[in-house]
């Protein structure tokens, strides 16, 4: 049976680690990295596969660093 799932891709080098996306994510899919990017910011990253592709994180991201995918996967 096919199921609708989502995924996100974070532009790690452009993320400034503001954490606004974390508060906006209904599936607790995003957390901050322990590492830092080239600018010295911790960056948003995916920590589970519960993403529904709702786009909330991307919509509130001030730097527009999140690309959102949504599609069917077969189980």
């Amino acid at each position: 049976m096919a199921k609708i799932k989502g995924d996100i891709l974070v532009n790690v080098e452009r993320c400034k680690g503001c954490e606004v996306c974390i508060a906006a994510c209904p599936s607790s899919t995003i957390a901050m990295s322990k590492e830092v990017n080239g600018k010295g910011y911790h960056f948003a990253m995916k920590v589970n596969n519960d993403c529904t592709g709702c786009m909330n994180c991307a919509i509130v991201c001030p730097d527009g660093v999140i690309t959102v995918y949504r599609g069917k996967i077969s189980e």
């Binding site: 989502g6 995924d7 990253m45 995916k46 995918y69």
Partner: peptide
């Protein structure tokens, strides 16, 4: 990028 990538992450599935 250190974390999980799914098969959904392809151009035709971009919604934002």
């Amino acid at each position: 990028e250190p974390f999980v990538k799914t098969e959904i992450r392809k151009d035709e599935n971009i919604v934002y």
